[in-house]
Design a protein around this nucleic acid. Structure first.
Length: 746
DNA sequence: GCGTGGTCAATACCT
DNA sequence: ACAGGTATTGACCACGCG
C-alpha cells in the first residue's frame, strides 16, 4: 500500500536542531548528487551521493536498449506503464537519445527535482526562514560617455561596485580604479566572496534582467568565469519567460548549481496580481509601497540614475550609502515575499528558484508524481483536452447608492465543494487527489492555529507564511482540474464544481431575499446586500440563512458598510465610515487617465457620504484648464502595458496586420525601446489631415513637447462629456438625458 | 468626407 | 502555460448622407 502517503509535509513544529538539513542540490555530469548540508553552527558542508536518474516510458518497444538501464513494469493501465532507472547520467542520456521515433517518454526536469522526489527529501525541511543563508546583490555601473544608460556591451562601460549583504552585514566591493584590470579584479573578488560566504540564495531586484546579465557580459569580456555556484560551479544562462496574470515577462534566466537566484522584481509582480495597487515595480517605489522605506522623511539616499558614475567619482560616501540602501530595501522586499516560496519547497520536490518561477499546475503535478513513483503506479498522458465549461455565477442586481450593506461569503467555496463531491480526477487511478486535498486543508488549519499560539515571534511568522502558502495551493486545485496542461486534469469534475457553486449561491440569494434583504451584487462565492433590519445583527441573519447549507459548506459574515455604490457587475465601491474600497476595472484601472480617475474618486466619495464637494465643480475646472492647455500632461495621459515587443508589432504591421494600437505605435518611437511587459504612457495630439485615429496621434509623455506637439484639448474635453454622460445620472441633480441629443457639456 | 452602429480584439479587472 | 466572467476602449468596416 501507500506507505509514504500522504504527501511529504514539513515538520510541525519546526525542529530547533538543523544539522543535516538539505540546503542545496546539484546533479553533476556523472549523475552524482552534490548536496549542501547544514552544520550545527549554521554553516554548510558538501556531501556526495549516488543518484539513479529515471524516466517513464509509454512504449514496450523501448524496453531493453541501453546497458545497465533497468526497466520495471508498473501497476495499472495508465499511458506510462514502464519505469526506467539508469545507473548514472551518461547511460540515462543515451537511453533518452535512443528513444524510437513516435515513442512516448517523460522524465522530471531538472534532475535536481528528480533527486528530491526519488529520495523523498525536501530542501530546508526543518529550517525556519531566519536560518536560510541569504545574500542580497546589487551592482552599480558606469557609462563612459556619461549621462546615458550603461551598457555592458560597451567595452568602456563597467561595473563600479558590487554590493553584497549577508544578514545585516553589507559587503561592498568597489572598483579601485577605472581600468580594465581593476574591473577584472573586482569580478574575481565577487567569485571569492560568494565561495567563502556560501549563501543558499542570492536575491536581487531585477537581478536576472540587469545585474547578473551585466556581470555575465563583463565576465565574458575579461574572460573571468561566472563561478557563482556551489561546488566551484559556473552559472548557466538561458532565456525564459514567466506569466504574470494576463501578461508574459521575458528574462534571461540564470541558474547557479546548489544555490537559488531570487528576483524580487518578479516576486513583486506576482504579489501585485491580487493586490493590483502598484503603479511601478522599481525598487524604490516598491520599498515605499510595502512600508520598507519611509516616503515622507529622508528614508534613503537617492542618486539620479544618470548621475551615479559622477557621484562615484566625487562623493564616494554618498555612492556607498546609496548602494547600501538598495541592498537594505531588497532584503526588506524579500523578507515579505520570499517566505511563501520557502515554505512551498518543504512540500514540493523542487528547488527554491523553481518554486518562484514555475506555475501552480506544475507543482501539483509533482505532488501526484511523487505518489505515483513510490507506489510504482502507471501515470496518465502528459495533458488532457478540456472542453470549455461554465464558471461562477456573477450578477449585479442594483445600480446606485445603498446604505446598511452587509457582505457574506462562503468559506473556501471551491475546495469545500471538491471535498463534498469527494471524487478523484478520472485519470487518478491511485486516488491521490481528494486525500491530498483533505490533508493539505487540515495541515493549513493546524498552521493557522500555530500562527497565533506558537511560543516565539519567528515561529509565528513561520506558521503564518506556511498557512498563507497552503491557502494558495489549496485554492489552485480547482483551477488545476480545468487546465488542459494538467496531467491529472478533469474538466468534467471542474464543471461540476462550478455548477454546484452556482446552485449554492442562487439558493443563498433566494434565502436572503426571503429574509427581506435587498440583494445588491453576487459574485461566485459572495453576496452584498442591504438591510436596515439586519444591519445591527448580521450574525443572527447568518444563522437564519445558514440552515439551507449542505454539510461541509460554511457561510461567513465578512463585513458591514455604511454605504455601497453599485455600478455594474464586478464594479462597485464600499465605504465603512473610514476608508473607501474600490472594485472593478471601471473604477480602479491603473491605465485610466488620472484626471478621469480623480473625478471618479471624487464622485464616489461624494455619493458615499465621505465628502460634501460634488465632482461637478472639479469637472468644470478641468474643462477650463484643459482648454487653456494648463493641465499637466501626466494628468491626462493614459498608460498601457505592452502585450508584445515593439519588433513583433512592427512585423505584424509590415504584414498588413490590423488593428493598429496607440501604445504600440508610441513604443516604436521611443528610445530606448520599451519591452513587452513595460508600461507606456501616452497622450493624443490634435487631428491633422490623414491623422484622425488615436494611434496616429499618440505620443509618449516622456519628452512631451508643448510647443510642437501639444495635447488636443478637444479630445480630452470630449472625455469629460463622456464621463458626465456615464456618471452624471448618479448625481441625481441633472436634467434627464434628452432623447437623441448630446447630453450636457454642450 | 463624416457620423453611426455594429463586431472584434486587447486590456484590466474580480472571485 | 491554474479557471471563467465582466467592463471598457478603440480600430475597423459597412452604411447612409450630401
Amino acid at each position: 500500500m501507500l506507505s509514504a502517503f500522504p504527501a511529504k509535509m514539513p515538520d510541525v513544529p519546526p525542529n530547533t536542531s538543523f544539522a543535516g538539513e538539505l540546503c542545496g542540490v546539484w546533479i553533476d555530469d556523472d549523475g552524482r548528487a552534490h548536496l549542501s548540508v547544514a552544520t550545527a553552527d549554521g554553516g554548510r558542508k558538501e556531501q556526495v551521493e549516488t543518484f539513479r536518474p529515471f524516466a517513464w516510458l509509454g512504449d514496450a518497444a523501448m524496453v531493453g536498449g541501453v546497458a545497465g538501464v533497468e526497466v520495471e513494469t508498473l501497476k495499472g493501465e495508465g499511458t506510462f506503464r514502464w519505469l526506467a532507472h539508469a545507473p548514472e547520467r551518461a547511460a540515462f542520456e543515451e537511453f533518452v537519445r535512443e528513444v524510437p521515433e513516435g515513442a512516448v517518454i517523460d522524465w522530471i526536469r531538472p534532475l535536481e527535482n528528480q533527486y528530491l522526489l526519488q529520495t523523498r527529501r525536501r530542501l530546508y525541511d526543518k529550517l525556519i526562514f531566519p536560518q536560510l543563508r541569504r545574500c542580497q546583490l546589487d551592482i552599480e555601473t558606469g557609462h563612459a560617455a556619461g549621462g546615458g544608460f550603461s551598457d555592458a556591451r560597451n567595452a568602456a562601460d563597467r561595473v563600479l561596485a558590487v554590493g553584497l549583504q549577508f544578514g545585516a552585514r553589507p559587503r561592498l566591493l568597489v572598483l579601485e580604479e577605472e581600468t580594465d584590470t581593476a574591473e577584472k579584479r573586482l569580478l574575481l573578488e565577487l567569485n571569492d566572496v560568494l565561495e567563502a560566504e556560501d549563501p543558499d540564495v542570492i536575491e536581487g531586484h531585477n537581478i536576472f534582467k540587469f545585474d547578473l546579465d551585466y556581470l555575465r557580459l563583463r565576465c565574458k569580456h575579461h574572460r573571468v568565469p561566472c563561478a557563482w555556484g556551489r561546488f566551484g560551479q559556473k552559472a548557466v544562462f538561458r532565456n525564459s519567460r514567466l506569466k504574470v496574470a494576463e501578461r508574459w515577462i521575458d528574462f534571461p534566466r540564470c541558474d547557479l548549481p546548489g544555490r537559488a537566484v531570487v528576483d524580487t522584481y518578479l516576486l513583486v509582480q506576482l504579489y501585485d496580481i491580487a493586490a493590483r495597487e502598484m503603479l511601478a515595480y522599481g525598487l524604490k517605489d516598491v520599498a515605499i509601497h510595502l512600508g520598507i522605506t519611509d516616503e515622507t522623511e529622508d528614508g534613503r539616499t537617492t542618486i539620479e540614475g544618470s548621475r551615479i558614475h559622477e557621484v562615484f567619482r566625487t562623493d564616494r560616501a554618498r555612492f556607498l550609502a546609496y548602494l547600501a540602501d538598495d541592498l537594505r530595501e531588497t532584503r526588506g522586499v524579500a523578507d515579505l515575499l520570499l517566505p511563501t516560496y520557502f515554505e512551498q519547497v518543504k512540500t514540493f520536490p523542487l528547488l527554491l528558484q523553481e518554486a518562484t518561477l514555475r506555475g501552480t499546475a506544475n507543482k501539483i503535478d509533482l505532488l501526484f508524481l511523487d505518489e505515483y513513483y513510490h507506489a510504482r503506479q502507471s501515470c496518465p498522458q502528459l495533458s488532457t483536452e478540456v472542453a470549455p465549461f461554465e464558471g461562477g455565477y456573477t450578477r449585479s442586481f442594483q445600480e446606485g447608492v445603498f446604505r446598511n450593506v452587509l457582505h457574506f461569503d462562503v468559506a473556501s467555496l471551491y475546495p469545500s465543494l471538491l471535498l463534498a463531491i469527494g471524487r478523484n480526477p478520472r485519470s487518478d487511478t491511485l486516488g491521490v487527489f481528494i486525500p491530498l486535498l483533505t490533508r493539505l486543508r487540515d495541515y493549513r488549519l493546524n498552521c493557522k492555529q500555530l500562527a497565533r499560539t506558537a511560543p516565539t515571534e519567528d515561529l509565528r511568522a513561520e506558521y503564518q507564511a506556511r498557512q498563507a502558502s497552503f491557502k494558495i495551493l489549496i485554492n489552485s486545485f480547482y483551477g488545476y482540474l480545468g487546465f488542459s496542461g494538467a496531467r491529472f486534469g478533469d474538466g468534467d469534475l471542474a464543471a461540476e464544481v462550478t455548477l454546484r457553486g452556482r446552485e449554492l449561491l442562487q439558493a443563498l440569494i433566494d434565502e436572503f431575499a426571503k429574509n427581506d434583504c435587498i440583494i445588491l451584487e453576487a459574485d461566485t462565492d459572495g453576496i452584498y446586500l442591504s438591510s436596515a433590519e439586519h444591519f445591527a445583527a448580521p450574525e443572527k441573519l447568518l444563522a437564519e440563512v445558514s440552515i439551507i447549507l449542505p454539510p461541509g459548506i460554511e457561510l461567513e459574515f465578512d463585513g458591514s458598510y455604511a454605504a455601497m455604490f453599485c455600478y455594474k457587475a464586478k464594479n462597485y465601491a464600499l465605504y465603512d465610515g473610514r476608508k473607501i474600497i474600490l472594485r472593478g476595472s471601471a473604477l480602479r484601472s491603473r491605465g485610466i487617465e488620472p484626471y478621469l480617475k480623480k473625478l471618479t474618486d471624487r464622485l464616489i466619495r461624494h455619493l458615499l457620504g465621505a465628502e460634501a464637494a460634488s465632482p461637478l465643480a472639479l469637472l468644470e475646472d478641468y474643462r477650463r484648464r484643459i482648454e487653456a492647455r494648463a493641465v499637466d500632461i501626466t494628468e491626462i495621459a493614459k498608460s498601457e502595458v505592452l502585450g508584445q515587443n515593439p519588433e513583433t508589432y512592427e512585423q505584424f504591421v509590415a504584414g498588413g496586420g490590423k488593428p493598429r494600437r496607440a501604445s504600440a505605435e508610441v513604443a516604436l518611437r521611443l528610445n530606448p525601446r520599451p519591452r513587452m511587459g513595460d508600461r507606456v504612457t501616452y497622450y493624443i495630439t490634435a487631428k491633422a489631415k490623414g491623422q484622425t485615429s488615436d494611434w496616429q496621434r499618440a505620443r509618449a509623455v516622456s519628452g512631451y513637447d508643448p510647443d510642437r506637439a501639444s495635447y488636443d484639448p478637444a479630445y480630452y474635453t470630449k472625455k469629460l462629456d463622456d464621463w458626465l454622460e456615464r456618471y452624471g445620472p448618479f448625481l441625481g441633480t441633472l436634467p434627464p438625458k434628452p432623447q437623441g441629443e448630446l447630453f450636457a457639456g454642450a
